[in-house]
Design a protein around this nucleic acid. Structure first.
Lengths: 333, 333
DNA sequence: CTGTTAGCGCATTCAC
DNA sequence: GTGAATGCGCTAACAG
């Protein structure tokens, strides 16, 4: 209940100067062994803990990084945040959280509040509808670096970490081809997402490697809603070439597609095999999980993004824009 | 790139005292309209933002609340955190995050770091194996209130929000009875969890209401792992009284149980109906979701816990321990 | 209505 | 090796 002990208090009790105590606490070489011991001993006895708010104020540094992302209830992001937290904690940083809930206006507000809160830097995964990056650019003036991950802005002068879906898709389709599938369908995502063309490219590349020709009617798009996916499935099943395997945009899409297929009396993963992206815990709870998943490494993305941010905080004069692209990879169950 | 503007700067440019500027910025009534306008105008022009770290230091208050919970990848907690965040933001608080990953040692460390970081208060859901609450009790000395939710300590002198599973279970079993089921099984959880006896009590109560007698062999326990649940199912299916409905401890358990039943050739939700707890997004992605779920209101728990915490921060002299118990409730799909 | 002064806790520069 | 003095940016108590 009494106020927490301060350096001043220790100094008075020991009849020393505050500065001496401060130095002793920091193991400053110029302090004699005897006094250093005395000081540290008393500090321990009093349960002295430096007042971080004072340090933050004085050092103009809060050892706090802000993290802005769309939605923690998406497994991808809750995995990513663990990577962020781990990397931050290992470097003695704390993590301030803000969910945009995929609302650009809310994202902007969060960024501003975090700026005022004087976070040292920001880790960001954009809201779906963020088109204007002015609120991020404004941070430059305040020397608050930003590292984006996964959902990154469409511009070049930024730091980011992302996952390339092309390699994983190539592996997924190749895997299906090796299993003997010759007609493979794909439920792809909205055109705006960078990941969509990447998936298509990987798909085509796998066919090309086997000298098979690409049939555009076997790629359909979903807006990622349940309805969109069901419509996509309907289209795919109505196609004159009957697919024996389907690459779904992610596990959520896969699950909707599987459900639709089951309703149509299709024997899932027998008559129609599914492959998906994400490999999230979700898939282990599916009744008919995809036979293989393309891993996007959310934890690693978060971890690396944070490492970059912290290195940026170290040498403020770093000019180059860092970008790490992680290759996605197929994981067979 | 230049340092952010300060009150001092504004004061000098306007040939006023710092305190005048400070008051003008805060719309203090004693400041003349003319000067107030002048100050606010210049502040806007300079993009002045108060330095929060200075305010935190000076006010001995950071407007930050720490949140310590086991695991964000559990849907329950990621929902809860949104409630916490919303309540916090509405009251101009920020949220500092720490996951214990169900490790008591890590939890303890997080609490200490947050204490040093001078959070104003803490929202906590305990790690599974936390048995020692000393690190929380230590916070009292520093006047840092703690509000627990869902996974709460087994002691009385605390603030908490929790959900009583008894009412929901009563509703769930009654629902099944009304649908004509006469032999109902339950997969309950580990004995240590407070929620386990609550479920059993609700179960018995529903039977009693219908003047049906309770058969202990129809309640089996799972340790919540997949294997534990499968063993429980095996036991239940081997019982001489064949259940036509099962109440599963949560959606994860339900899914494992459903999978096992399917493997045994049982027509799920036809021959064997499932009811579960949580009603998490997970269940909407199951191929055979439970026909009804007992809602535990994670968002509301987080929200209310935060409201309590913030009220505690308002009147520090509040002595009474607040506890809110939310009744669980059945949601039929 | 406005100015002056002090102090929050700490690290740091400059003396001795 | 140690002490004294300064200032980070802000609010608030006290004067006028």
């Amino acid at each position: 209940m009494a106020n927490p002990p301060t350096i001043k208090e220790i100094a008075e009790k020991l009849k020393l100067a505050k500065s001496t105590v401060s130095r002793a606490l920091h193991d400053h070489p110029s302090i004699g062994l005897r006094t250093r011991m005395k000081v540290q001993e008393l500090a321990r006895a009093l349960n002295y803990e430096p007042n971080q708010t004072a340090i933050h104020f004085q050092q103009k540094k809060t050892f706090t990084i802000g993290i802005v992302l769309p939605e923690l209830s998406e497994a991808f992001f809750s995995a990513a945040i663990s990577g962020i937290e781990d990397a931050a904690n290992q470097n003695n940083y704390m993590v301030l959280l803000g969910q945009s809930h995929d609302d650009a206006a809310r994202e902007k507000k969060i960024v501003e509040i975090m700026k005022n809160h004087r976070v040292d830097g920001l880790i960001v995964s954009l809201a779906k509808n963020t088109g204007d990056y002015a609120h991020f650019e404004a941070l430059e003036k305040f020397n608050i670096p930003v590292v984006f991950f996964d959902r990154i802005p469409d511009k070049k002068d930024i730091h980011y970490v992302a996952c390339n879906m092309e390699s994983g898709t190539l592996q997924a389709v190749s895997h299906l081809l090796e299993k003997g599938h010759r007609v493979i369908g794909m439920i792809n995502g909205p055109e705006q997402l960078v990941a969509t063309p990447q998936r298509e490219a990987g798909f085509k590349q796998a066919l090309q490697k086997k000298r098979l020709k690409f049939d555009a009617s076997l790629i359909v798009n979903s807006d990622l809603t349940r309805e969109g996916t069901r419509a996509a499935m309907q289209q795919l099943l109505a196609n004159k070439r009957k697919a024996t395997a389907i690459v779904a945009f992610n596990d959520y899409v896969a699950q909707d597609a599987v459900q639709y297929a089951l309703e149509q009396g299709i024997k899932v993963n027998k008559e129609l095999t599914f492959v998906s992206y994400a490999n999230l815990p979700l898939s282990s709870y599916m009744a008919f999980p995809p036979v293989a998943s393309v891993e996007q490494y959310p934890y690693e993305q978060g971890y690396k993004a944070t490492e970059i941010l912290i290195s940026l905080l170290g040498n403020k004069n770093e000019q180059d824009f860092q970008h790490i692209i992680i290759d996605s990879r197929l994981v067979v169950r």
